[in-house]
Design a protein around this nucleic acid. Sequence first.
DNA 1: TAGATTGTTAATCGATTAACAATC
DNA 2: TAGATTGTTAATCGATTAACAATC
Lengths: 217, 217
Amino acid sequence: MREREISQAVITRLPRYYRYLGELLEDDIERISSNELSKRMQVTASQIRQDLNNFGGFGQQGYGYNVKYLYTEIGKILGLDVNHNYIIIGAGNLGQALANYTTFERRGFILRGIFDNNPVMEDVTIRGIPVRMMDELKDFIAKNNVEIAVLTIPKEHATDVASHLVEAGIKAIWNFAHTDLAVPESVMVENVHLSESLMKLSYRLKQNGEHAYQKDN
Amino acid sequence: MREREISQAVITRLPRYYRYLGELLEDDIERISSNELSKRMQVTASQIRQDLNNFGGFGQQGYGYNVKYLYTEIGKILGLDVNHNYIIIGAGNLGQALANYTTFERRGFILRGIFDNNPVMEDVTIRGIPVRMMDELKDFIAKNNVEIAVLTIPKEHATDVASHLVEAGIKAIWNFAHTDLAVPESVMVENVHLSESLMKLSYRLKQNGEHAYQKDN
DNA sequence: TAGATTGTTAATCGATTAACAATC
DNA sequence: TAGATTGTTAATCGATTAACAATC
């Protein structure tokens, strides 16, 4: 049924299209051409048309794209038309910050539970959700139909916890731990390595500095 | 002086090399070949050699790479051999979580100040650092030689704050707000769009589900 | 119908992989 | 010296851009 594998680059751009279309929608803009959108998003119109046509013809010659329709369709492609239950593992600063992110709920990501291994945290509630101990994990995932686990724990425990999650039948891991996880390929992993992102910024900062220096000479 | 622009893909991989080399160093491994490293990192040996040779010949034929030396050199390339002063703007959940991230300090990123526009937060301290009001921003950046601003504020205020930062002479912005920033090209921006990362995971979760379904038929 | 703009094919560009001579 | 492994050139692969026929 699927002709060709969609490239990682395209997938990465989809949520950005979705965001821009959402803004257009808020501004009551009804239709938009690839050319107009390309100017706003700073990408080529050709790329927009190519990207969208990976998933079907959403536009109309001579008209462009209907904003609301395209927004809805991309939402479906991204799986935002259905709810996803998720849990957070690691009730530290970052875990708590994410637990308080109500924006995710609006996109259909429903926080069902928070887990930690520190007994002090037991039954502390965050946004009304009690922190549970790790021994409840497996049962909880099964009973609550949890698809996604957010990993906000130190890297030392990440490998271990990941394998528990896999055993419990988790489908996807959003990994904030500073390590790569080895899981079966049926389990999706999306890494958010914050310190690596910061290092990238540091690199570019440095390059820019040198660049500027050379210019001055 | 610089022959060719280093591609974004290479820059993104650098911190990952750095992380793996750091782990090798902790394990007291003295030398490593591109082949051995490629197995650990799940990339091709050829790519490792190509990537590194963008910055110079760090290896030795018949020997491989000296772990400690390569680690140090990549650290220099990433600008981790010098300290960078940074501030956090937005003392909400995420801002506070990042403020408590002492790992950054170890890499030479020094948190100098935290800013917010909510008077209730004034002089609340996080990790000993008082939250300041936005009217102090410009002076503070100049006086404290702040290079990097971390933006953990709602998207509504991001554009406005970004332009204040540019005026104040900030060099780089680590942007967690859900919007793109328009700044002069001399100001580096690194985006961390968490909800977009989560949507990517959602997409892959969905694909994987369909895939599995098709397999069963 | 004429004009606009898509969907899609072809051309180009860039990044990854393969191969191997250089050299430790 | 022989073996190992880099640094680097060449080949391949994939992604982006350009062009244009199809069509609303």
